[in-house]
Amino acid sequence: MNTKDNFERDLNIFAGNKIKEFRKKKKLTQKQLGKLIDKSDNTISNYEKGLIALNQDVLFSLAEALDVKVDDFFPQKVSAGSLHQAVATTDENLTVGDMAFLKELMDYIKSLDETERRYLMSNIEMAVEIFKKNRN
């Protein structure tokens, strides 16, 4: 994948994460947001995952439905070489995709009851320990 493709993918993921953030702040489901902008909940899901690029019409519809500015879907400062910095993380080794996965994992963990959460966390800890042992 070339730099332009990486840039576009990262930008789609960033915008998708913002859509999801704004949708949740408005307490809307993907289906409800889809109805507001005449798109399926599947399409909204794909926007949020960064799998579908947002065209101008969709951006304006989303901004209106979520009561935000179009600019709010994008990082403040963007250039082909700086999108990863624009989506800033404390660990420069994480990609935007990594961050999206970790955020999705955290959201899932938060949705579990205490017993399920403890069980999942113990399994993750065990997987990390196995990974560390196999890595050495």
Score class of each variant (00 low, 15 high):
residue 14 F to H: 06
residue 16 G to C: 05
residue 18 K to D: 10
residue 18 K to G: 09
residue 19 I to H: 10
residue 19 I to C: 13
residue 20 K to D: 13
residue 20 K to T: 06
residue 20 K to G: 07
residue 20 K to C: 11
residue 20 K to H: 12
residue 21 E to W: 06
residue 21 E to N: 10
residue 22 F to K: 11
residue 22 F to P: 04
residue 22 F to A: 12
residue 23 R to P: 15
residue 23 R to Q: 06
residue 24 K to E: 13
residue 24 K to P: 03
residue 25 K to F: 07
residue 25 K to V: 07
residue 26 K to F: 11
residue 26 K to S: 14
residue 27 K to S: 13
residue 28 L to V: 08
residue 30 Q to V: 08
residue 31 K to R: 14
residue 31 K to M: 12
residue 31 K to N: 03
residue 36 L to V: 04
residue 36 L to Q: 13
residue 37 I to M: 08
residue 37 I to C: 12
residue 38 D to T: 14
residue 38 D to L: 02
residue 39 K to P: 02
residue 40 S to R: 01
residue 41 D to T: 09
residue 41 D to P: 15
residue 42 N to A: 15
residue 42 N to R: 14
residue 48 E to S: 00
residue 49 K to Q: 14
residue 49 K to E: 12
residue 49 K to V: 01
residue 49 K to W: 05
residue 51 L to R: 12
residue 51 L to E: 09
residue 53 A to S: 15
residue 53 A to L: 02
residue 53 A to Y: 01
residue 54 L to E: 06
residue 56 Q to H: 13
residue 56 Q to D: 15
residue 56 Q to M: 09
residue 57 D to N: 13
residue 57 D to T: 03
residue 58 V to N: 12
residue 59 L to I: 13
residue 59 L to P: 00
residue 59 L to K: 11
residue 59 L to Q: 12
residue 59 L to G: 06
residue 60 F to H: 03
residue 60 F to I: 11
residue 61 S to D: 15
residue 62 L to R: 03
residue 62 L to H: 03
residue 64 E to S: 14
residue 65 A to P: 08
residue 65 A to R: 11
residue 66 L to I: 14
residue 68 V to T: 05
residue 71 D to I: 07
residue 72 D to W: 10
residue 72 D to C: 11
residue 73 F to V: 09
residue 73 F to W: 07
residue 74 F to V: 04
residue 74 F to L: 14
residue 76 Q to M: 05
residue 77 K to D: 13
residue 77 K to V: 11
residue 77 K to E: 14
residue 77 K to W: 01
residue 78 V to P: 01
residue 78 V to W: 05
residue 78 V to H: 02
residue 78 V to F: 12
residue 79 S to N: 06
residue 79 S to D: 02
residue 81 G to D: 15
residue 81 G to F: 11
residue 83 L to V: 11
residue 83 L to C: 00
residue 83 L to W: 07
residue 85 Q to P: 00
residue 85 Q to R: 09
residue 87 V to Y: 10
residue 88 A to I: 10
residue 88 A to K: 15
residue 91 D to R: 04
residue 92 E to R: 09
residue 92 E to I: 02
residue 93 N to F: 10
residue 94 L to N: 09
residue 95 T to N: 06
residue 95 T to L: 09
residue 96 V to K: 02
residue 96 V to W: 01
residue 97 G to M: 03
residue 97 G to C: 05
residue 98 D to Q: 04
residue 98 D to P: 08
residue 99 M to A: 02
residue 99 M to P: 01
residue 100 A to I: 04
residue 100 A to N: 07
residue 101 F to T: 10
residue 102 L to D: 00
residue 104 E to F: 04
residue 104 E to L: 02
residue 104 E to I: 04
residue 105 L to R: 05
residue 106 M to V: 01
residue 106 M to I: 01
residue 107 D to M: 05
residue 107 D to P: 01
residue 107 D to Q: 06
residue 108 Y to E: 06
residue 109 I to E: 04
residue 109 I to L: 14
residue 109 I to K: 09
residue 113 D to H: 13
residue 114 E to G: 05
residue 115 T to E: 12
residue 116 E to T: 04
residue 116 E to W: 00
residue 117 R to Y: 08
residue 118 R to Q: 06
residue 118 R to M: 03
residue 121 M to R: 08
residue 122 S to H: 12
residue 122 S to D: 15
residue 122 S to R: 12
residue 123 N to T: 05
residue 125 E to F: 03
